[in-house]
Design a protein around this nucleic acid. Structure first.
Lengths: 213, 213
DNA sequence: GTATTTAGACCGACTGGTCAGTTCAAATAC
DNA sequence: GTATTTGAACTGACCAGTCGGTCTAAATAC
C-alpha cells in the first residue's frame, strides 16, 4: 500500500506521499476540524467529512486507516502548528516580551483555527477516549514551550521566584483558549486588540505584583 | 437541591410528582452528569444511564421525553445549583469580599460537581446543538451574578471605572472552570487552597492595579 | 382490619433506522 | 503504468425510542 520509497524523486514528500495526496489530506483535516468543533466527534460521520472536503468516502479510507486515526493525526497536525507558532513567537525575546508574544500567538492561532481550538477545549479534560493519551502528550508539548518561557522569566528575576511554573503555564494556555472562544462565539464584533490587552493586563499585572517583594 | 415542594396535601406534589419519582429523577441526573462528562453526550447511551442509575430504560423515558430533553433539564438543574451558590455567596458582602467569595463558591461547586463542570466546558462553545440556546441562556444567568458584583465594585470605586464588566465576568467564570478542571484532572493531589489563592491572586492584583490610576 | 380498586411508576424485550468500516471495479491524474 | 480517487454496494453492530406488561402503595369499600 505505502509503495513509494523515500528519496525517489523531488515530486514526493519524505514519507513517500505525493503533493496531491498531501493536498487531499489537508482538505480532510480542515473539514474534520470544522465538523468536529461544530458537532463533536461522534456526531460527525465519515460521509459528512468526505462531503465537506469535496472527496469520496473511499478516499478518506485510502488516506486514513479509520475515523479515529484520522482524528488522532488531526490532533498531531494541529498541535504541531500551534507549537511551531509558539516557538517562532518567543525566539530571541527576553521573558517579558516573550510572554506577550505567546499570548498574541495563541490568540492569532485560535482566530485562524477556531474550530481546532474549540475541539481542543472540548476534549481536553475528557477521560476514557482512545486518543486521550495522545491529546495529553500534545498538550504537554504546547504548554512546555510556555513553561520554558515562564521559567526563563523566573531565572532572570522578571517573575516571582515562588511562581508555580507548570500551573502558571497551563493556566495561561487555558485562559487564552477560554477568553478567545468567548470572544469569537459570543462577541465576534469585539476587536482582537481589546481581547489581547485584557489578557495581557491580567498576566502583566500579576507578574508585576509578584515581581515586587 | 431540587427538593420536594412544600405544601403537599395529598400523596402527590403540586405538579403531580411523587417523592418516589423525584428520587428517580435525581438518580438519573447524577448518572447522566457523570457519564456525559466522561464520554460526551453522543457516546453516552440511554442504556448506560439507566444502568448506572439502577433503573430500567423505560423509566428514563417515563421521566423524560427524550435523551436530549433529559440533558436539557440536567443543564437547568445544574446551573440552578450554581447560581444559587453564587447568590448565597455574595449576599451582603462588599464588592472585594464578594469577589473572593464568588471564586471560592465556583471552585467548591466544581469540586463537588466536577462532572457537571466538565460537561459545561465541553458544550459551552459548541454550536448547532438543540440545547445550545438553553445553555447560552443559563450561562448568562450565572455570569450575570458575577457581572452584578463586578458592577457594584466599579460603582463603589473598588474596581477601575474603565473595566469591561461583561468581559471580566465571563473571563472570571471561565478562568475558574479551566484552572479547577486542570487541577482536578491533572494535579488532584494539589490542595484546593493553593488553587484558590492562585486565582484570587490574579483577580486581586488586577483589581488593585486597575484601581490605581 | 382486610379486600379491592386505581393510577402512578417502573420494567425490559423488541424494532427500525443509522453509521463505521470494507470492498472493488472503473475512472482519472501524474 | 502506477498512484490516487471515485462512488456505490454491503454488512454488522449499535442505539434511541416504543409498548404491553408488572409492581407498589394510597385510597376506598366492605
Amino acid at each position: 500500500m505505502m509503495g513509494l520509497r523515500a528519496g525517489m524523486t523531488r515530486r514526493h514528500g519524505v514519507d513517500g506521499r505525493s503533493a496531491r495526496r498531501d493536498a487531499t489530506r489537508q482538505k480532510l483535516f480542515e473539514a474534520t476540524m470544522a465538523l468536529i468543533a461544530e458537532q463533536g466527534f461522534s456526531d460527525t460521520t465519515v460521509d459528512q467529512i468526505a462531503e465537506r472536503a469535496g472527496v469520496a468516502k473511499g478516499t478518506v479510507y485510502y488516506n486514513f486507516a479509520s475515523k479515529s486515526v484520522l482524528f488522532e493525526e488531526l490532533l498531531r497536525y494541529g498541535v504541531g502548528l500551534l507549537t511551531a507558532d509558539f516557538t517562532a513567537a518567543v525566539a530571541g525575546l527576553p521573558p517579558v516580551d516573550a510572554m506577550a508574544a505567546l499570548v498574541r500567538a495563541e490568540l492569532a492561532f485560535i482566530q485562524r483555527y477556531r474550530s481546532f481550538a474549540q475541539l481542543l477545549l472540548s476534549e481536553m479534560w475528557r477521560t476514557q477516549r482512545d486518543w486521550q493519551q495522545t491529546l495529553r502528550l500534545l498538550r504537554e508539548e504546547a504548554i512546555t514551550v510556555i513553561a520554558e518561557t515562564v521559567q526563563a522569566g523566573v531565572d532572570s528575576g522578571d517573575f516571582a521566584a515562588d511562581l508555580d511554573v507548570r500551573l502558571s503555564a497551563s493556566a495561561l494556555f487555558g485562559v487564552c483558549l477560554v477568553v478567545a472562544l468567548d470572544w469569537l462565539v459570543f462577541n465576534p464584533e469585539q476587536p482582537i486588540e481589546q481581547v489581547e490587552s485584557a489578557v495581557l493586563a491580567i498576566v502583566r499585572s500579576r507578574a508585576a505584583v509578584n515581581a515586587q517583594p
